[in-house]
Amino acid sequence: MTEMVEGRRQQQSFWFIACALVLLVQIVAEHMMGRVPICTCGYVKLFEPVVKSSGNSQHIADWYTPSHIIHGFLFFGLTHLIMRGKPLSMRLFVAMLIESGWELLENSPIIINRYRAATISLDYVGDSILNSAMDAVFMVVGFLFAWRAPVAVTIAIAIFFELLTGWLIRDNLTLNVLMLVWPVEAIKTWQGGI
């Protein structure tokens, strides 16, 4: 019995280490892409409250942080459905691959230019490495929260985050995806009214 427990513990350790390596690869890749390590302002803030500012997407957290927590909720649900019976640590690894892949794509010229062309983010320059890495960490927070919390609570928090950010900054995960994939001029006009 103790051998089984020890084997399980080693397997979980392997996948958690693999998650950390994925984050490290993301950080190194973004450095090689020329991303700035921290805000060009020269300091680090815990939270950047102004969306239309040069500090947005540059510090530890911002108004898009709830979207990354929701990513964690969604990736937990997805891996729960398609990887039933697999260890949580392996499922978290898959979530990290998806999130880190998105962070690399999001900070590539093709997506940065798409944001500038199709959304109100005309001055978007991409994330700092710090912000991007923290986006992945916040996804992990969301994933682990969804693992421990009742489904109804997780869904309620996701809806609350979407409504709150939609009201405060006229943007959220749903609108962000919609405007990136299929821009709606009326939404762009409404979002520009901040």
Rank of each mutant, 00 (worst) to 15 (best):
F145H: 01
Q12G: 08
D171E: 15
L24P: 14
D62P: 12
S89H: 02
C19Y: 03
L81H: 04
W15K: 11
A136L: 01
V125D: 07
H31E: 13
E106K: 15
S100C: 15
F16G: 06
A61S: 15
D171A: 12
R116F: 10
F73S: 02
Q11L: 14
V151P: 03
Y64N: 11
G72L: 04
L23Q: 09
L104H: 01
R84G: 04
N172P: 13
V50H: 08
M96N: 08
Q12Y: 06
A136W: 00
R91F: 10
V51M: 14
Q11V: 09
G192F: 13
W15F: 14
S54P: 00
C39W: 02
K86G: 02
M179D: 14
Q191L: 05
M83K: 06
M179I: 06
C19A: 08
P66R: 02
S53W: 08
H31N: 09
M83S: 06
L175S: 10
S13I: 05
V125S: 04
M83L: 15
V5W: 03
H71R: 14
P66C: 05
L178A: 12
L144P: 11
S132I: 10
A18R: 05
Q26E: 15
R91L: 12
V153E: 06
I82G: 08
L105M: 14
A20Q: 05
W190H: 11
G101H: 08
S132R: 11
V36Q: 11
I69V: 15
I27K: 02
Q10I: 09
K188R: 15
M83H: 08
Q191S: 13
L180D: 01
S54H: 08
H71V: 05
I70Q: 08
L92M: 14
C19E: 03
P183I: 03
L163V: 13
L105T: 12
S128H: 03
Q12T: 07
T40F: 00
F14R: 13
G142K: 05
V141G: 11
P66T: 07
H31T: 14
I82A: 06
N172H: 09
I110L: 14
L97P: 03
G72K: 03
R84Y: 10
T2K: 08
F16V: 12
G166Q: 10
V22P: 00
I194K: 01
F14D: 04
Q58Y: 01
V141A: 15
A149V: 01
Q12N: 15
A133E: 00
T189W: 11
I69Y: 03
T165G: 07
E6S: 02
M90G: 05
T40G: 07
N131H: 04
A152G: 03
A117I: 03
F143N: 01
N113L: 12
I129Q: 04
Q191W: 05
G34P: 12
L122S: 05
E30M: 15
I155T: 09
A156E: 04
S13N: 10
A18L: 06
F145N: 00
A158N: 01
C19W: 02
M134T: 12
I17L: 09
A18G: 07
T189C: 06
